[in-house]
Write a protein that binds this DNA or RNA. Structure first.
Length: 852
RNA sequence: GCGAAAGUGGCGGAACUGGUAUACGCGCUAGACUUAGGAUCUAGUCCCGUUCACGGGUUGGGGGUUCGAGUCCCCCCUUUCGCACCA
């Protein structure tokens, strides 16, 4: 006997077969170039952009989650009449290609381009409205030619420079990393989790710190609060003062007549505590350490420096680490009171922040306090905090100031709050609110310091000792120094014949011929820079290259740039908040400063999707085999169902756990939409005009809600509203309304509003309805406010705030009449017995609350 | 430690500006159509008491403002994420 076919399933497929519909329409759209977008001055443009993918070779559900709702919104915008640009491309340079090369002996180029082909095929199954003519691939020479060109522009404008610095180096990836790419307590590589090491290397940097203030200004862009906060913290602006301390010769050899030794500038946010500085601390790597160290301390200092350098290689517990340090034996003079104070070194002072040196005020800084306690250094209070409760008689009051003192009156913690300056020479008595400003003014008068701002943000280190990236277009000449590759010689093309050696240096360095060139300036023998650029450089400007990816006279066709930029809506993950999203802002601001673009923010609106978790609410990980494979889902349910479910299952900006049973509900919904349109309706009954008006109201209310929610990226409620409308239309059909104009209008609106969500299904239904191709050229339905207006509302009747009844009331009922209705209700009477009515609160159109 | 966000049925989640809490969907229960159903359709489904009528309770916990609080304010708890000695 033949195995019995699942007739039900087959029966269903005969009605709605996405597997048949979807490829057919996609082919047609491609043939008709339905999604190509062109400049049209008569229409308002809308540049919708999704973060470009890295061609890892396999499209995962996260890509679908990022891209298909973004596509739906771009489609919605297009139906609203905007001229929508929705491009796609690949961020194709990067380490995984090289790792694959090393592991599997495939050339990075081959691996990358094969992956791109595979991903293009997968991407097409989404049914998104990408204009593939605009596709850009960052590893194409026609692309990176301009990445290199921008490097030269930045260099010409002094925004790119080379310097030797202690940089973070990943010993596994064999390359330096930007600060943002080093993560966690153990300072590991974001890519491979290997703890990084410090290396001193001459590297290229971009002067992003020049733009710190501009980057802190978000007033021109609509970006999520979270991203703005992350970037603000990352930039880390602190106001304070820079004060110059000077080294002092040892006391016993004093009086050499020299005016104050070497300058040690420090940065402080608390200049008002300067008189409380009882010692100084330098970072162990500080350049002056050798010179201030006394003979007696030299050995101890060297040992400590070596130990900290080693320590940064090993795991370094940051939080409650005991503070350690060593006295250098040297002294400095505090410029505010000429006091001689000892200079220490300690690893709690970072070379990478401020000036790498601090004045230590143990009475008013907890870290300095701990250090002073440990090494028996003087603690001298110079701030008198305002006491809460105002007990002046020494009783232990409630203020936190007294919490800083133990039972014996000795300090147990630093007093970090503001207060009146005491024991501070000429500034003694200055009240808290003027302390900082007056001290800064005084420092400037005396010529020993000035007001200053410090940032946590560092210049962007872009050198990578890797092969698969855009070569830095510079030439090193012994005679002339670093010289730019002349523009006509761009791009500096990557050689294909490369040998793989896991050394710490770029494979380009070992190429027999590539690096040897003539100096463009003197013509003598010179060498190319063999480092390549951080791939974040490539992705900092891709939104402009998309507009004219094959333009060869410049990075973009000026007319395309003029029309489409800046990006109106950008979507992608929040994980790039302090990387890509800050780099691309910097890049655009630099372009603006260099006069290359007229705007200074790349993306006007940003929205982040959340992450999609496994069914167990854990992060999906390949290693645990808990990934959701989109290709399988598409095979089973069709792309439209997957799209709709991704929009429905959680708030998009929040994300959440995947549910394999949840998708069934969405599949059923599309099935019902299908049968609503495609199946024969039962014969018409007597249509009551009330029912028809009610249906119409429902339709127009739905249009209002769906429009509003699409606008606000609230995709889950877009779908639930469409489901409700579908249910209402099914009920109307079953009630015999299918012949009515209201029903036809409802079906029309439903199909249109479903088009951005389920583009293939909507196209098929549109054709079944006998309407002219294509649904995706139709206008979004307009809500008729009059039709949407309710005729009645449900009056909620409360007694003392508790709901006691609900009555349908015509909307135009006068307040007085509403009161009478409410008071006449038996359910209300029951609760008003033996009480006097004190107040009636009427919220028109909503409720009445009777208060006794 | 600092900063940000979030805690709503068995589950995913709704609730526009302080005004019907739990929309929509999953799951579950009952019924219909069926040889059968993990298909489809119909009805029900926050909790407690009650045959019903009806009554009481409920948005992490506690307090407050208000005629009225998931929503605003204060304190606490939990979770997630980011930063982590930033002077």
């Amino acid at each position: 006997m033949e195995p019995q076919p699942k007739s039900d399933r087959q029966g269903r497929r005969e009605r709605y077969r996405p597997q048949e519909i979807e490829p057919r329409w996609r082919r047609r759209w491609d043939e008709d170039r339905l999604y190509e977008a062109s400049i049209d001055p008569a229409r308002t443009k809308c540049y919708c952009l999704t973060m470009l993918p890295y061609p890892s070779g396999d499209l995962h559900i996260g890509h679908w989650y990022a891209m298909t709702p973004s596509d739906a919104r771009a489609r919605f915008k297009r139906m609203q009449g905007y001229n929508v640009m929705f491009p796609i491309g690949f961020d194709a340079f990067g380490l995984p290609a090289e790792n694959a090369a090393i592991r599997r002996n495939v050339h990075p180029k081959e691996w990358t381009y094969r992956n791109i082909d595979a991903m293009r095929r997968q991407l097409r199954t989404m049914g998104a409205m990408w204009d593939w003519r605009r596709e850009a691939v960052s590893s194409d020479p026609e692309y990176y030619r301009w990445t290199q060109w921008f490097f030269l522009k930045l260099w010409q404008h002094g925004l790119a420079y080379r310097k030797e610095a202690a940089v973070d180096f990943c010993p596994n990836c064999n390359t330096t990393l930007a600060r943002e790419q080093v993560q966690g307590d153990d300072r590991h590589c974001e890519r491979c989790d290997t703890p990084v090491v410090k290396k001193r290397l001459a590297q290229w940097f971009f002067r992003i710190t020049d733009f710190a203030e501009e980057l802190l200004d978000f007033s021109k862009i609509d970006w999520p609060e979270r991203v703005r906060t992350l970037q603000t913290h990352w930039i880390g602006r602190s106001e304070g003062a820079e004060v110059v301390f000077r080294t002092s010769p040892p006391q016993d050899r004093g009086g050499r007549g020299e005016e104050g030794g070497e300058a040690i500038p420090i940065f402080t946010t608390r200049p008002d505590t300067l008189w409380g500085a009882t010692f100084m601390v330098l970072a162990p790597e500080h350049p002056l350490v050798e010179r201030v160290t006394s003979e007696e301390q030299r050995t101890a200092v060297r040992e400590y420096v070596e130990q900290t350098l080693r320590q940064s290689d090993i795991q370094r517990e940051a939080a409650d680490q005991e503070k350690t340090g060593v006295a250098t034996g040297g002294y400095a003079v505090n410029p505010v009171n000429q006091e001689r104070i000892p200079i220490w070194i300690a690893d709690y002072v970072l070379m990478t922040y401020g000036t790498g040196a601090i004045m230590a005020v143990p009475a008013h800084d907890q870290r300095d306090f701990q250090f002073a306690r440990r090494y028996g250094l003087e603690i001298r209070p110079v701030i008198e905090p305002e006491r809460a409760g105002g007990t002046e008689r020494g009783e232990p009051g409630a203020g936190s100031a007294s919490d800083a003192h133990g039972a014996d009156g000795a300090m147990t913690a630093a007093i970090e709050e503001r207060g009146t300056m005491i024991d501070s020479g000429p500034l003694t008595g200055t009240p808290a609110d003027q302390a900082v400003a007056r001290t800064v003014a005084w420092l400037e008068e005396q010529g020993v310091g000035r007001g200053a701002v410090s940032y946590r943000l560092h210049d962007w280190l872009i050198s990578r000792q890797r092969y698969w990236g855009a070569p830095i277009p510079m030439i090193h000449c012994e005679m002339c120094g670093p010289q730019p590759v002349p523009e006509p010689l761009l791009p500096v093309v990557l050689p294909d014949d490369i040998e793989w050696r896991p050394t710490g240096e770029s494979p380009l360095k070992y190429h027999p011929t590539w690096k040897h060139v003539a100096c463009p300036s003197c013509g003598g023998a010179a060498e190319r820079e063999t480092d390549t650029m951080d791939t974040f450089m490539c992705s900092s400007w891709y939104q402009y290259r998309y507009l004219s990816p094959h333009w060869s006279e410049g990075p973009w066709d000026p007319s395309e740039l003029e029309y489409w930029t800046p990006v109106d809506t950008y979507t992608g993950g929040i994980e790039h908040a302090t990387m890509h999203l800050i780099y691309t802002r910097f890049f655009t601001k630099a372009l603006h400063r260099m006069g290359l673009v007229s705007f200074d923010e790349p993306m006007l609106q940003l929205r982040n999707q959340g992450t999609i978790l496994g069914e167990d609410s854990e992060k999906m990980s390949k290693s645990r085999g808990k990934v959701v494979a989109p290709d399988e889902l598409v095979g089973q349910y069709g792309a439209d169902t997957v799209r709709a479910y991704l929009m429905f299952f959680a708030r998009w900006e929040q994300g959440g756990p995947w549910s394999s049973s949840g998708i069934e509900g969405v599949a059923r919904w599309l099935q019902r939409v299908w049968s609503l349109v495609a199946e024969e309706a039962p014969g018409g009954a007597d249509v009551k005009s009330d029912d028809e008006r009610a249906l119409r109201r429902r339709v127009h209310q739905t249009i209002q809600r769906v429009t509003r929610d699409f606008e606000g990226f609230e995709f889950n409620t877009v779908i639930s509203s469409l489901m409700e409308l579908t249910n209402a239309l099914v009920a109307a059909r079953n009630a015999g309304l299918s012949g009515s104009p209201a029903f036809a209008e409802g079906v029309d609106a439903l199909v249109r509003m479903t088009a951005p969500v389920a583009p293939h299904l909507a196209e098929e239904l549109w054709a079944l309805l006998g309407r002219p191709y294509s649904i995706h050229h139709q206008r979004w339905p307009e809500a008729d406010a009059e039709a949407a207006r309710a005729e009645e509302f449900t009056l909620v009747v409360q007694v003392n705030g508790k709901v006691r009844d609900r009555v349908a009331v015509p909307v135009d009922t006068e307040e007085e009449a509403v009161r009478m209705i409410a008071l006449g209700l038996e359910s209300v009477q029951r609760h008003l017995e033996n009480r006097t009515l004190r107040k009636m609160i009427y919220v028109p159109g909503r409720l009445i609350n009777l208060v006794t």
